[in-house]
Amino acid sequence: MKTKILVIDDEENIVELLQFNLETYDYIVDYSYDGFDGFLKAKEIKPNLILLDWMLPNISGIDVLKKIREDKELKSTPVIMLTAKNMESDKVEGLVVGADDYITKPFSVKELLARISSVLRRYSINTSREEEVLIVKDIKVDLIKHEVTKNGEKIDLTLKEFDLLKILLQNKGKVLSRNFLLDKIWGYEFYGETRTVDVHIRYLRKKIEEPNSNEKYIETIRGIGYKID
């Protein structure tokens, strides 16, 4: 089955360029010039990946991304942000909300195609039946249902928070560096912005750890990285 990619961008020349190159590589391409319409189209066609522009009319790309990550059917859909914004704070915001990758305009089509391939490859890795459920203390991570519970109560995590918790649990007892986590979860070296991991870990801790409790799930190894025992 061919891979479906939805392009949400208000620049017609960019859409035409992307459509031509993606279809050359045998992708099925649909598109929208508006954020609201793009979100509705995503719900209709359920693409395998979304290329999402930050600067859109009526609703920003970052707000569309938030809607995607909050939607039950779309929340696990990989999203690559396309934007002229190249400030570190903008990149961090996009990644924290749930972007899988980030490329600034003007961009190389070859680089974009490589990143699309990398993101799709990460999502295509099947979870083995032996690792359907991961457990630490009173927290259970169901990798098939993509669900996290604590004492039986569901915890809502963003896609990146879920991926962080999963990889830490799959490597229990090991110290994982920030660069390692960036490479495994975001799929490429995000040089100079390892604080992205720290921000996600902080949000994750708020959701899985009890306030004012001495019991910690994620241990910080200063100067090195993080681990779960």
Results as ranks from 00 to 15, higher is better:
67 K>S: 05
127 T>G: 06
98 G>F: 03
127 T>F: 05
87 M>S: 14
62 I>T: 08
85 K>C: 09
124 S>V: 01
106 P>E: 05
94 G>R: 05
80 I>W: 10
123 Y>M: 02
98 G>I: 02
105 K>L: 11
109 V>N: 14
87 M>D: 15
73 E>N: 12
86 N>C: 09
130 E>K: 12
109 V>F: 14
119 V>I: 12
75 K>A: 01
113 L>R: 06
114 A>P: 00
83 T>Y: 07
125 I>C: 02
79 V>S: 00
101 D>M: 04
52 L>G: 07
69 R>H: 06
80 I>M: 10
52 L>F: 06
57 P>I: 05
58 N>L: 06
108 S>D: 13
113 L>H: 09
74 L>I: 09
79 V>F: 00
132 E>I: 07
113 L>D: 06
62 I>A: 05
66 K>F: 01
70 E>Y: 08
123 Y>R: 01
82 L>I: 12
60 S>T: 13
106 P>Y: 04
116 I>F: 11
81 M>I: 15
109 V>Q: 14
97 V>K: 14
60 S>E: 12
129 R>V: 15
126 N>T: 13
68 I>F: 04
93 E>W: 05
85 K>P: 02
101 D>L: 05
123 Y>F: 10
106 P>N: 03
104 T>L: 11
127 T>L: 04
70 E>Q: 14
130 E>D: 14
87 M>L: 12
76 S>W: 15
